[in-house]
Design a protein around this nucleic acid. Structure first.
Length: 581
DNA sequence: GCCGTTTTCGGCCCGACTGTTTTCAGTCG
């Protein structure tokens, strides 16, 4: 490997080291120390090179003298003695075996030493040749299980987008509720509840008087292509698409501790259990054991109350500093769905939406909004039936009539304005000035070089009639990486001009993503959280945007669409007036 | 290897499931 520089690369090196040491049978505590340091480094908000320059490496949680030294050697020379030594013992590709479910360090080391299996590919070959089934200590049962695991590993190679996993989870929950009416609580936990943009498997937790009955019902659901394991209160099925789904069920009095445990993250959870130990107690999904007595926790609040700390919203539970702040009662208040007074980015049948303006407005009002910005595409996006100046004037008449009828609810007329490949805006200033709000989008030419692409975004941000830059990077969760923008330049210019940056809640976009939104917040930017809905139902996608904003610790006073109508209009007007043509 | 509201030594998250285990190791979340 080239010399690691980035936090992610340094973290990956320590993960690899931990894996290789586990093959060697090194102390689990030493291995866990390296793993903890790796996770800690991966979650750092600033480049590790900057921390090193400050001489503050050992201030990183889980990094002491030894690991700090190894980090320095890694940065300077690309390796360190222990890494070289253990790699001489086990080729790094042997670590691939650990990713196969059912193979841990002991079996991986045995496979390498007895059969010379040094990679996932070699494992597959050995299985095909029947060498594993024939080896004492492994046998046909093990070989079968591993072969099946390898197949699903390849099929469901990576994590699936949140926008795919969450609806599946909600379906499973509805189906199970129907079959087991005695279920008291049930929720999608894990990375779904934390609104991570991709999901490794579905975690569902439930409270019911008879856990076993719920487990039995779950494993016989038609959605279960395969049952991987099941016991008294836990089970795991595999869905048709290869995604795993775990269910944990306990009686109602344990619901709170079970939900905390199921929500994670793993490292948040471990940190809580450490806190319990410091107080002479033990925390598990059953509750808190203190002086030999188990105190079940029926609500999450009870768990956090035991530690005298605030309860972080699930998207903040990543052990990236939230626990320390919660202990000091200094957790920032983050924006919630109920803080939002309206949606700033929606479409109708006037461009490529599926619902009329009236349908969108009624659905928005039913959500409890005070206002809705209708932002159909501008003419340049021909595929979306974009609007020109004449059609915008026609649309204004329809909106005015609707507003007369729906008052005090208000539909604001806006546009999602194309920023052309040349950098020019798609409509003239006179047309834009007549609109209530303008959000600008870079849809085309996302493969342009960094300088040109960034210049387009900056031109839009600087334009006095542009209020919001929509989905700023253009990335898609399911694959498209997004344009090579200079994000720091975009944050700086947006902060300077007061142009808001969007967190687009459409689950395939989530753009800005969590880390970008956090950086934008730090740079002093104003944000919007939008659904980008193309039909009435999709207005609910705002929840994904709010989840992403919570992951970025965005407070409500930095989100434009928490403003009531009069303040929003005044804010837009004032911002336009302050920026001269 | 790291760390400290009992500690600079002696701990290190916790419980469930699987397999072939006749009392527990390995793996997982």
């Amino acid at each position: 490997m080239a010399r690691p520089r980035s936090n992610a690369e340094i973290a990956a090196t320590f993960r690899l080291l931990a894996d290789l040491l586990s093959l060697r049978g090194e102390s689990i505590y030493k291995i866990n120390a390296y793993r903890r340091a790796a996770e800690s480094i991966a979650a750092l908000p600033e480049p590790i090179t900057a921390i090193r320059a400050r001489g503050a490496l050992d201030e990183i949680p889980g990094v002491g003298k030894e690991i700090a030294l190894k980090i320095e050697q890694l940065l300077d020379t690309g390796s360190f003695p222990l890494l070289d030594e253990v790699q001489a013992e086990f080729p790094r590709s042997v670590a691939e075996l650990l990713a196969v479910p059912g193979i841990g360090p002991k079996r991986a080391a045995a496979l390498y030493k007895t059969l010379g299996i040094d990679s996932k590919a070699a494992l597959q070959r050995a299985l095909d040749e029947g060498r594993i089934a024939a080896t004492p200590g492994f046998g046909p049962t093990f070989a079968e299980r591993i072969a099946a695991a390898l197949k699903t590993l390849d099929a469901a190679d990576t994590r699936v987008p949140l926008g795919v996993a969450r609806p599946l989870a909600l379906q499973l929950i509805a189906a199970l509720r129907e079959r087991v009416p005695a279920i008291v609580h049930i929720e999608a936990a894990g990375s779904i509840r934390r609104f991570r943009e991709t999901v490794g498997d579905i975690d569902i937790v439930a409270a019911a008087p008879d856990p076993r009955a719920a487990v039995e019902a779950f494993i016989t659901l038609p959605q279960a292509a395969r049952v991987e394991m099941h016991g008294e209160n836990r089970c795991r099925i595999v869905l048709d698409n290869g995604l795993g789904a775990d269910l944990w069920v306990l009686p109602e009095q344990h619901w709170g501790s079970l939900l905390v445990h199921g929500t994670g993250s793993k490292y948040h959870d471990i940190r809580l259990r450490d806190l319990a130990i410091e107080r002479g107690a033990r925390l598990s999904e059953y509750g808190i054991e203190h002086n030999g007595v188990l105190h079940p926790c029926a609500s999450e609040q009870e768990v956090y109350d035991f530690f005298g700390m605030q309860m972080p919203p699930p998207p903040m539970r990543e052990n990236t500093g939230e626990i320390e702040l919660a202990l000091r009662h200094r957790l920032p208040r983050v924006v919630t769905v109920t803080d939002l007074r309206g949606d700033m980015h929606t479409h109708s049948t006037w461009s490529d939406g599926k619902a009329s303006i009236r349908e969108m407005a009624l659905a928005a009002r039913a959500r409890g909004y005070e206002w809705l910005c209708l932002t159909d595409h501008s003419r340049g996006l021909g595929v979306a039936n974009g609007l020109d100046a004449r059609r915008l004037r026609e649309q204004r008449r329809e909106i005015d009539a609707l507003n007369a009828e729906l008052a005090p609810f208000r539909v604001l007329q806006g546009v999602e304005l194309e920023v052309r490949s040349s950098g020019a805006l798609d409509l003239d200033d006179e047309t834009l000035a007549a609109l209530d709000i303008v959000i600008a989008s870079v849809h085309s030419g996302l493969d342009q070089p960094r300088a040109k692409l960034t210049a387009r975004a900056l031109a839009a941000i600087r334009h006095p009639l542009v209020d919001v830059l929509a989905h700023p990077t253009g990335r898609k969760v399911s694959g498209r990486p997004g344009g090579d923008f200079d994000m720091d330049a975009i944050y700086a210019e947006a902060a300077r001009t007061g142009t808001a940056l969007e967190i687009d809640g459409s689950p395939d976009r989530l753009d800005l993503r969590d880390v970008h939104a956090r950086a934008a917040l730090a740079a002093g930017c104003l944000l919007t959280i939008d659904s980008d809905a193309h039909d009435a139902e999709a207005l609910a996608n705002i929840e994904y945007g709010v989840g992403t904003a919570q992951r970025a610790w965005i407070p409500p006073d930095r989100v434009l669409n928490t403003l009531p109508l009069d303040k929003l209009l005044a804010r837009l007007k004032r911002n336009r007036a302050q920026r001269s043509f």
